[in-house]
Simulated scan of single mutants.
Amino acid sequence: MTTSASLAIVAPRQMIIGGGSLSRLGDLLKQFGFSRPLVVTDPWMQSSGTVEKCLAPLRAAGFAPVVFHETVPDPTDTVIAAGVAVLQAGDFDVLIGFGGGSPMDTAKAMAILAAAPAGTPMSAFKVPVAADKAALPVICIPTTAGTGSEATRFTVITDVARDEKMLIAGLGALPLAAIVDHDLTRTVPARTKADTGIDSLTHALEAYVSKRANPVSDMYAERAMRLIGPHLRRVYKDPADDAAREAMMLGATLAGLAFSNASVALIHGMSRPIGAHFHVPHGLSNAMLLPAVTGFGLNHALPRYAEAARCIGCAAPSDADQVAGAKLMEELRALNHELEVPSPAAYGIAQAKWNALLPVMAEQALASGSPGNNPRVPDAAQIMELYVEAFGA
């Protein structure tokens, strides 16, 4: 954990949190002096009419919003380029990312790419490059309790030509503001609740054990785990549980603030290649890896993992670290079982293709930089072993 007295902490300038807070969107834009919003969302939000929940308060405030709805799961550099073309063809002064992680990540990447000279590829911004410039400010409005993108300085974009999920980090990806309204999660399917919920738990856990953790990120991570731990199963089983939905939404945002300031680690580094090569949703690929990767690093940061277990609620305050660590491993396996998380094998991934891609996935995981934050830093061979362990029968 970082103990230096000097910390650089980043967060959106304003966050409006609570049920019904989306109604304040128009006032938020006026407060910052914006008048020409481009709303970035996905095809389902558009076709189902759900995007109207975002557009209605804008129109009521006198704005005439334009919608770009061509985002895709695991956003690609080609979609970002298409979005930038729409952005530059109009006269906009703010981007609004409305939806799950994909629309929010797309809006952030559009803002970054639009600030670059024409013809610059999205790959020019992948880590270790600092993507600190953006053409327009971004306001994020999450509709799932999971990615935390509304609070982070990160966006993840797939390079289509290379089948690589690129981590892009910098102040250009940090939203100016966010609206976190748990009422927007009422109709989220159970599978998505599970995947995004485990994603947010992974954010908090990895931020807590990261070598870049600090006292401020710890406060966010601990509170996030205390909210997510008791409520993830509840929100998965009962969509009408308003208290659980509210807790999960706040927990996801706090987890986003935690990993934005401490970074993620090995789970995320290994998860991105699975998404790129096999199109597994990000939260689900995290869940597939969570027990095996946690076990790999457990004894290298046992006091931190033990305290995480106490925060999550699966270990008692009086449990010794070794006992709490063992209970954490039991909890992660039980959580995957109860939330019906499939192994890669059960998901339908062919073992021959998985094995053939092991060297490439290990290389891409290491190149992301995230494994270097892990309590136990692996080499390529150890990452491949972990992929084999996680594959399942």
Score class of each variant (00 low, 15 high):
155 T>V: 09
130 A>V: 00
144 T>V: 12
176 L>D: 15
151 A>N: 11
185 T>I: 14
199 D>G: 10
191 R>C: 01
185 T>D: 06
195 D>M: 04
150 E>S: 14
139 I>P: 05
160 V>Q: 14
137 P>W: 07
191 R>M: 08
199 D>K: 05
129 V>W: 02
205 L>D: 03
185 T>V: 15
176 L>E: 15
128 P>Y: 00
209 V>T: 05
211 K>C: 00
155 T>N: 12
202 T>I: 06
136 L>M: 11
154 F>I: 09
212 R>T: 01
169 A>N: 12
125 F>A: 02
180 V>M: 13
205 L>M: 14
131 A>G: 10
164 E>G: 00
192 T>H: 07
131 A>P: 08
192 T>P: 00
149 S>C: 12
138 V>D: 01
207 A>C: 09
181 D>Q: 10
165 K>E: 15
132 D>M: 10
130 A>G: 02
147 T>A: 09
129 V>T: 00
166 M>W: 14
213 A>L: 01
175 P>H: 08
203 H>L: 01
187 T>H: 11
194 A>L: 05
211 K>D: 01
143 T>G: 08
142 P>V: 11
181 D>E: 12
128 P>A: 04
158 T>F: 12
190 A>L: 07
203 H>N: 02
186 R>M: 06
146 G>D: 13
183 D>R: 07
178 A>C: 10
160 V>L: 13
182 H>N: 07
184 L>K: 04
156 V>R: 05
152 T>Q: 02
191 R>K: 12
169 A>M: 09
146 G>W: 13
173 A>G: 13
152 T>N: 09
139 I>S: 13
213 A>I: 03
128 P>H: 02
184 L>E: 06
215 P>W: 02
149 S>D: 10
201 L>Q: 04
165 K>V: 12
136 L>G: 03
146 G>K: 11
128 P>V: 00
199 D>T: 08
210 S>R: 08
186 R>H: 01
162 R>Y: 07
189 P>C: 13
157 I>P: 03
146 G>A: 14
198 I>L: 15
143 T>V: 09
158 T>L: 14
212 R>P: 02
206 E>W: 02
208 Y>H: 07
168 I>Q: 13
156 V>D: 06
191 R>N: 07
171 L>W: 04
131 A>L: 12
124 A>Y: 00
184 L>R: 00
173 A>I: 07
201 L>P: 09
176 L>F: 06
193 K>T: 04
171 L>R: 15
149 S>R: 10
188 V>T: 15
157 I>R: 08
172 G>P: 10
180 V>A: 13
156 V>C: 13
142 P>R: 15
211 K>V: 00
180 V>E: 09
201 L>H: 10
191 R>H: 14
208 Y>W: 03
160 V>G: 08
179 I>Y: 05
187 T>E: 00
187 T>C: 07
199 D>S: 09
159 D>H: 13
135 A>N: 05
178 A>E: 09
200 S>Y: 03
154 F>C: 05
178 A>T: 03
164 E>T: 03
169 A>Y: 06
206 E>Y: 04
190 A>T: 06
140 C>K: 01
182 H>A: 10
140 C>T: 06
200 S>A: 15
169 A>F: 11
202 T>C: 09
129 V>N: 03
158 T>A: 15
